[in-house]
Amino acid sequence: MSELIWERKDLLGLEDLSREEIEFILSTAESFKEVSSREIKKVPALRGKTVVNLFYEPSTRTRVSFEVAAKRLSADVINIATETSSVKKGETLIDTGRNIEALKADIIVMRHNYSGAAAMLARHVNLSVVNAGDGWHEHPTQALLDIFTLKEKLGKIEGIKVSVIGDIAHSRVARSNIWGLTKLGAKVTVCAPKILIPPGIEDMGAQVTDDVDEALHNADAVNVLRMQFERDESNAFPQQLEYFKNYGITEERLEKAKKNIVVMHPGPINRGIEMSSEVADGANSVILEQVTNGIAVRMSVLFLVAQANEFIKKNEDTN
């Protein structure tokens, strides 16, 4: 076990995390994975703590995943979907955060459509903030569970080749994955039509190609992103079927790739657009395992930020 002490009360992204910190979250997650395999899937680690899911964007899988993780830690969970809340009346983010803090909640898990929202909230409240996705910026727990899954499947991250395929420009999953994977020593390639590759992505450590066969060639794993037709306004996208023809992952495409290539997707899948159904349900796909690992990783994250915040509060009391 490493000598690392986890000191962060928030998890806002992977960009600022050290390699050791990422590895620490993942090794802690291994212990939590075991909890989900018990008959009584509960430990009292966060008993009496309140976790608030504050989701400004609709989400089922991430929200439910965080809820299950928090409940397995014995925490109380409140879900706020802002469409039906006072946010509709114009309440600011900071006010919302402070109100939640006044309820003596301990952790806010937030998804927001503005990049940087989680960072801003964390600056203005003393409770812990876990970023469940902010705009196009980061989705750290998704990348962590992706890496956790890869580690399980391939035994290591150092030196492996991972390709991320999809709308890189607008993808927080892509950014978090690039940070996490490169910090752990993997070689990352991003692949998308040129207009969906943001400038300067090479400076983040990724290689770039717009040829999906090139991206698949020799890759140990491929992370297929969701094509977000509902998000971009500017119609810069090719037709859905055209995307499938040029970038969709099919069994034929995989034939030219490594036999045991690991196929991942953050979900939900657009069958027939990012990948064919055969691939989604096929032997190389670990999509459902990602979901299971998501619980363990999120339990680990919630546990660690809660402990760090406890320690910070204790030190403030004695000072």
Partner: peptide, 21 residues
């Protein structure tokens, strides 16, 4: 591993390191 079942007074150090059960 009892790290997840401790009460406050069993905390020896800042860092709770969780091992596998």
């Amino acid at each position: 591993d009892i790290t997840l079942y401790r009460d406050d007074l069993t905390m020896i150090s800042q860092q709770p390191v969780v091992h596998k059960t």
